[in-house]
Design a protein around this nucleic acid. Sequence first.
DNA 1: CGCCAACTTGAGTGCCGTCAAAGTTTGTGG
DNA 2: CCACAAACTTTGACGGCACTCAAGTTGGCG
Lengths: 229, 229
Amino acid sequence: MPRLDESLLTHLPPFSRLEKRQIRRILDQASSRRYDAGVAIFQEGHPAERFFMLLDGYVRVVRITATGEQVTALHIPPGQLIGIARAIGRDTYPATAMTASESLALSWPMHLWDNFVAEYDGFATESYKTLGQRLGEVQNKIVEMATQQVEQRVANALLRLVNQTGRKVENGIEIDFPITRQDLSELTATTLHTVSRLLSGWEKQGLVESRRKRIVVRDPHALVVLSQK
Amino acid sequence: MPRLDESLLTHLPPFSRLEKRQIRRILDQASSRRYDAGVAIFQEGHPAERFFMLLDGYVRVVRITATGEQVTALHIPPGQLIGIARAIGRDTYPATAMTASESLALSWPMHLWDNFVAEYDGFATESYKTLGQRLGEVQNKIVEMATQQVEQRVANALLRLVNQTGRKVENGIEIDFPITRQDLSELTATTLHTVSRLLSGWEKQGLVESRRKRIVVRDPHALVVLSQK
DNA sequence: CGCCAACTTGAGTGCCGTCAAAGTTTGTGG
DNA sequence: CCACAAACTTTGACGGCACTCAAGTTGGCG
């Protein structure tokens, strides 16, 4: 295994208050692994043996119903910890983590969690902040689903993706990982058909441009207006 | 202020590992207060000055949209901490806590939070477990809203309330705090009209009985069946 | 006894899901 | 390099669930 560079972690919140020496030690205990798009990093209900730091790529936190439908609860950008069951006193993962794009993650055996919390200043605090943010996001999602129409939810989801993961391109801002109509529908609790119709409509009005698995937002402001009506 | 009895806290998870002497000290720092039904214990966005232990009554965790609609994200039973913004590194409350019934809560100034975490064994762990449970519940709710019809959601909500707060009565199990059609509709993201129609229907079939603000479930099993179809 | 909140019920309608079919892009193996 | 399959996308037709609007009833409280 190639020796990992310290700069990978120095700027990430859970580790940002640590000294080089400490980060070195943390890296030496880590495994690094690449994941293809669309695979599970860990699965709901399985014993929580490791926790992860997503270095590159995007991950969907997914729950699967009895009838096999998938519901996406969260999208996680690079630089966050995932699979931190231990932080909330669980010994199995509470949800499945699927890669949305090709991804790279470090991981550590779960028994190191307590060490990290005890030895590294700020590690626990920052982890719990992340947890709090996620709780907030999930609550927002409930509010959205309870009060908004499908059109507004899809507009919001697009805006959120653009903000989190947008990359400037010629005609606007592109979501920088492959995303299908199906993915968007799971994110917004609707069907791929409805998403397709909406995107077609918006494309005709010049708000977005899309090809297979790629979406470019040309007029974010118009989407904001849509999302609030 | 009357001296509070130690037995109030001894059996509650965040404090259950502590000695009598420690609990005494914690109680001496607490304020105790009664709340009428339907009032806010604290409000979203306000500075998080105190954290609370709900001793009696029920609390709805509510978010209010720009247009004034209320959405209930969680129901909290007695024996849980609320308003623990500090635990997730926030200094304002992330949601509003409304009493669903007359309630009783202890509270402490937020600056004691760090003391509690540092000095009392198990306090932090148990608090984070609670947090994790809430994250799980909220995610369940998203899945429910994404995949189930209104009828099933209402049936589920009723079952959950009965499990959390049910009290045996002559003809079945009664939800032991006043709850309106409106409350149920905010809990399940529908309208009071639809809830009213559903309850009327179920009443005709003998599944439930209801008068103003009171609901008795006569046949929980039938509701389970409904909720899963 | 009057008022108000809570609840009920009916009628109409529109959003969006389901069903169905066809078109387009990408990748793969011969 | 072409054929073909698989994955993704589009579009139309139809219908039902649940929302809105509207009117009225019930029950509790001062």
